[in-house]
């Protein structure tokens, strides 16, 4: 079996007080393996430690204890030099919630170029990468536009292009759709899925939208700094009580199926995470009634 792309063992992190006296444990031991090419959703209530977990993965924050290996590189063993850090951040990109606070340049194409510029990519290749990245997210025609005149979904796609231009193996989305309207969210989600399916990029999508999580291959649920459960969306969403204890809900369609089952209606099948799956299951149950 090949090595997982992300491997953590008992990963812990505490925020220090400004005086350095008190400590606020945010992660209390997370052990998880994420394989290259996987699409993983991360769920958890506000303040459960999702963003903290994400920031540990590219060493924006340094783990307090535990083991963290990324792409075969052990990051919790010995000193990490600047070159290794750059290599890590090139491999593990991150897109944040507010698109306004992650775009640096005043022209779209220059913003996309920002990452590779920092990596010292020579100019001709830079041009090619920027054009390719903008093509991937479908924003090529906006190359010369000013970011602040774009819609939220478009800005977020520019931010994604900025990551793609660094040619990462993995991109972490920290609530990247939270500030978008349904249209913008669809744009971004389709882009994320396409990156995962067609470009083989490992995706970690942190989200509060259950139906967004249903699109993933696997769902991690973090509760108060601990990994509560993990599994396919179907597995995770069938245990409503557990999710409820973590302050989460199941998607509406799953809720319907689970309620019907509780009401004594026999609905066969596993496919309860997606709307289509739930509808099919109910239809089958109705037909065989």
């Amino acid at each position: 079996m090949t090595q997982p792309f992300i491997h953590t063992e008992n990963l812990c992190f505490s925020y220090k007080d400004s005086e350095g006296a008190g400590e606020h444990p945010a992660l209390k031991g997370i052990s998880v393996d994420i394989n290259a090419g996987e699409y993983v959703a991360v769920l958890g209530h506000n303040g459960s430690g999702k963003s903290t977990f994400a920031k540990l993965l590219n060493l924006i924050l340094e783990p307090s204890s535990g083991v963290l290996c990324i792409n075969g590189m052990n990051l919790t063993e010995g000193e990490i030099d600047d070159e290794q850090l750059m290599e890590l951040r090139r491999n593990v990109g991150m897109v944040f919630q507010n698109p306004d606070n992650q775009l640096v340049a005043t022209v779209v194409e220059e913003d996309v170029a920002f990452g590779p510029e920092n990596l010292g990519v020579p100019q001709e290749e830079l041009r090619r990468r920027v054009d390719d990245a903008l093509d991937v997210v479908g924003m090529r025609e906006y190359a010369k536009h000013e970011p602040h005149r774009l819609s939220g979904g478009q800005k977020q796609r520019v931010a994604i292009a900025g990551m793609i231009a660094m040619m990462p193996k993995c991109i972490i989305f920290d609530e990247s759709t939270a500030m978008l309207d349904p249209g913008g969210r669809r744009e971004v989600l389709d882009t994320i899925r396409m990156l995962n399916r067609e470009h083989g990029i490992t995706v970690l999508n942190i989200t509060h939208y259950m139906n967004e999580a249903a699109e993933a291959d696997r769902v991690l649920v973090i509760n108060d700094g601990l990994l509560l459960t993990q599994g396919t969306p179907n597995e995770v969403f069938s245990d409503r009580a557990l999710l409820l204890s973590a302050g989460l809900e199941v998607p509406q369609c799953s809720e319907v199926v689970l309620e019907l089952r509780e009401g004594g209606i026999a609905i066969e099948g596993e496919d309860i995470a997606s709307l289509q799956g739930c509808a099919d299951m109910i239809a089958r149950a109705y037909a065989t009634r």
Binding site: I60, D82, R89, R90, V104, F114, G115, N118
Partner: peptide, 12 residues
Amino acid sequence: ELATAMECRCYH
């Protein structure tokens, strides 16, 4: 936030 985002994009 911008500083974090810039760090993520290897700004040094």
